[in-house]
């Protein structure tokens, strides 16, 4: 089977910034909005998603030649659901407090579009190495997205980051930032910023060329 898709390195780099799941593809919005009121839950969610994404891409790529086209989504879902259950039970066993904070959002990774999209776009068509690089890149991109939103929300909402104070005591905590509206506000503003920076770079590149 000839592999005509992007190389492993291209897949890895694309996942981080050029095709960032949060800021470029707008995928996985449910955890992006729901668990970013603090950096710690956001990073735990990013870690759990990374585990599922890497394992699902690995298995899918291994069996890609045996996949029947009309049954592929069923196979993806079966694979993803298995690893999500493992991640969920692992959190319940070793991080019970965090598991309670994340609540149903860990089982909901099953329906996270990033994972099924990577299985469909990359892992079901490309070799294991490329699929792993792709999963790694996308996981980093998703972690970057969640962490950036969570950092802004936690700092402005509580004056702290990971429990350590970063803003002076006099800072009036913006309570709204840790509440649901804060998620929409932060996502919207950061999304605007990323778009603006992208457009500015394109313009600069265009002028040079």
């Amino acid at each position: 089977m000839v592999d005509s898709g992007p190389t492993a390195l291209e897949r890895f780099i694309n996942g981080i910034l050029p095709e960032n799941p949060t800021y470029r593809q707008l995928l996985g919005m449910c955890p992006t909005l729901a668990v970013t009121n603090g950096l710690k839950p956001a990073l735990t969610m990013a870690g759990a998603t990374a585990f599922v994404l890497i394992c699902a891409n690995f298995i899918t790529s291994l069996i890609r030649n045996a996949l029947k086209p009309h049954l592929r989504i069923l196979v993806f879902t079966l694979t993803i659901a298995t690893f999500v259950t493992i991640a969920d039970r692992f959190l319940q066993a070793f991080m019970p407090a965090m598991s309670k904070v994340l609540g149903p959002y860990v089982p909901l990774i099953i329906v996270n579009c990033i994972i099924i999209a990577r299985c469909e776009v990359c892992a079901s068509k490309q070799p294991v190495g490329t699929a792993l690089a792709d999963a790694l890149g996308c996981s980093l991109g998703f972690a970057l997205g969640l962490a950036s939103i969570a950092s802004v929300r936690e700092i402005l909402g509580t004056g702290c980051l990971l429990g350590a104070r970063v803003l002076p005591e006099a800072w009036p905590n913006w309570g709204i930032m840790v509440l649901p509206p804060g998620a929409f506000l932060t996502l919207g503003l950061l999304l605007g910023l990323v778009e603006w920076a992208g457009a500015a770079r394109k313009k600069a590149g265009g002028n040079q060329g």
């Binding site: 069996i63 029947k68 196979v75 079966l78 298995t82 259950t85 692992f90 019970p96």
Partner: peptide
């Protein structure tokens, strides 16, 4: 359906193993 049946058996037994290992702690 052979692939799905095979995967289901493999995943099912993996999950059973995880459950046996982690249940006491949970």
């Amino acid at each position: 359906a052979w692939l799905i049946l095979l995967l289901a058996a493999f995943f099912g037994s993996s999950l059973a193993g995880v459950e046996i290992a982690l249940k006491p702690r949970i």
